[in-house]
Each structure stands twice: as C-alpha cells, then as structure tokens.
Design a protein around this nucleic acid. Structure first.
Length: 259
DNA sequence: ATGGTCGTTGGACGA
C-alpha cells in the first residue's frame, strides 16, 4: 500500500482550519503531524477535523505549543511526552503507531536566541529525544520522526547561509545536537528525494514578500530509519498553502512510502 | 534581509 506522511506547523490549529481543510482535501495524507496547535484539549476542534475525514490525537496548552496527529486510519497506539505518564513535554511530543509504522511528532523548542536560556533548553531537547529513541525504538524499526525541528540542518536549507550562520535555527551548536540524533539512525527523507537547494518550509511573516523572494528556511522535517528510507518513494514541500489567505508561516512537508 | 507580522490575548510575549 501507499502511505503519505506529512508534517505541518499550523501556528494555531483553530486559526488554520480553512487552510487545513483545503489542503487535506486534495493532499489527503494518511497521517499529518501538526505542531503549534495552541489550544487546550477541551477546545480542540475535533468535530471540524472529523468532518474532514480524519481522526485526531492531541495534547495542547493555552496559547503556546501543542501537538496533534491526524490520521485516516486507526491509531494502534498513542503516547505523550518523554515519560510514561505523558506529563514531561507532552505538548511538544506525541507518538503513535498507524498501519504498523511508528510516528513520533515533535515541536522542538524554537530557542529564541543563542544567548538565551531557552537556547540551552533547546539543545538539551536534542539530547533528550536521542535518549528517547534509544529507549523506545530500534534503528531497524519502521520509525518516522517528523515535526518542526526548528533547525535548518545544512547551508542549502537557508536562503543566506553566510549571514544566518550563528542565528537561532542555523547555529553550529544546533547542528551538532541534531546531527547526534541523526547518527542514532535517521535519514532525512525529504533530502533523499530532493537534493537541490531552494526548498523551504518556513517563511517569516515579518519579512515582506518572503515567499516570492525565496527568503525561507527548511526547518520542518520528515526523517526515518534506513528501513523507512528504503520504503520511501518520494517527498516534497507543498508551497501552495503558504500563499493562501490567512496562511501559517510554515507549509506542509510530505513523504510517500510504498509498504 | 534586525524590521517587520501573526496568534493569542485583552498587554505583552513567543515565534
């Protein structure tokens, strides 16, 4: 069977329902990992999502963070956060199994700026997720790690690598921390299929005409084990939703697999 | 291309 797994930082799932509905209708991913839902669980728009043909699992908080996974298929398992109780970073990490595929969706801390405490918190997050993978999974598993990593891994993943080097999101410390997780056993599945530069998933609202001028960053990722990379048949970034009315500042990244 | 614009809020704060 074919399976499409996508990731999208919605920047408020409630504000993004029109864009989300329009995109899901034609893209029809089997699974969509969503970040920055910005809504408490009691107010999560379950019926809107179900009207789009999807079921959803989620964990959010007021105003900030929040993750969800939407799926056309049943969830074979669901867990939240780093710990068994789901209380540790449960609004930044949600994991499911769908069709025998383990999918971990993370909203990694943005980091604010390299001289801030939040930047250290971000770096620690990469250590923690690496340990998490080591504890719960094997490198031969059918495992996908997707989400907003808030890091552009390579120079080709930002529009001006010389100027941006050292900024949050494109900092050597972040690159080292992310590379250490990758070394555990991940392949950048988007990049495997798209070797060329100029592919971005985020354009800052504050930069005028950023999409038209190509001033983006590739900070949203679909990574997988070698096992999943071998099963992958394609990957792309859909730039359209970023150009619709009331867009998120991110746009979906999609990977397709033949299982 | 360090200024700006969103979203959640009900004045900032985070991104």
């Amino acid at each position: 069977m074919k399976m499409k797994i996508a990731t999208f930082n919605a920047n408020s799932i409630r504000a993004r329902l029109p864009v989300l509905g329009r995109w899901l209708e034609y893209a029809r991913p089997d699974v969509l990992c969503v970040q920055e839902t910005k809504v408490v669980d009691a107010d999560f728009p379950v019926s809107d999502i179900e009207a789009m043909g999807y079921r959803a699992v989620f964990r959010g908080e007021k105003s900030y963070n929040g993750v969800a996974i939407l799926s056309l298929h049943e969830f074979e398992s669901v867990s939240h956060g780093f710990d068994a109780k789901g209380e540790d970073e449960g609004t930044r990490l949600i994991a499911v199994r769908v069709k025998g595929i383990d999918i971990v969706n993370t909203y990694i801390p943005q980091g604010t700026s390299p001289d801030s405490d939040r930047f250290q918190y971000k770096l620690e997050w990469f250590d923690r997720i690496k340990k998490y993978f080591g504890k719960h999974y094997s490198t031969g598993d059918r495992l996908i790690w997707a989400g907003d990593f808030n890091v552009a891994p390579e120079p080709m993943d930002v529009h001006d690598p010389k100027r941006l080097l050292g900024h949050v999101g494109f900092h050597p410390d972040e690159h080292r921390a992310l590379a250490a997780v990758k070394k555990w056993g991940f392949v950048d599945i988007f990049r495997k299929h798209r070797p060329d530069p100029g592919e971005y998933s985020f354009w800052d609202y504050r930069v005028r005409d950023s999409v038209a001028r190509g001033l983006g960053w590739r900070v949203d990722h679909v990574w997988g084990t070698e096992t999943m990379a071998a099963l992958s048949t394609g990957a792309w970034i859909d730039r359209e939703p970023r150009q619709w009315e009331k867009p998120s500042d991110h746009t979906p990244v999609v990977a397709e697999f033949s299982l």
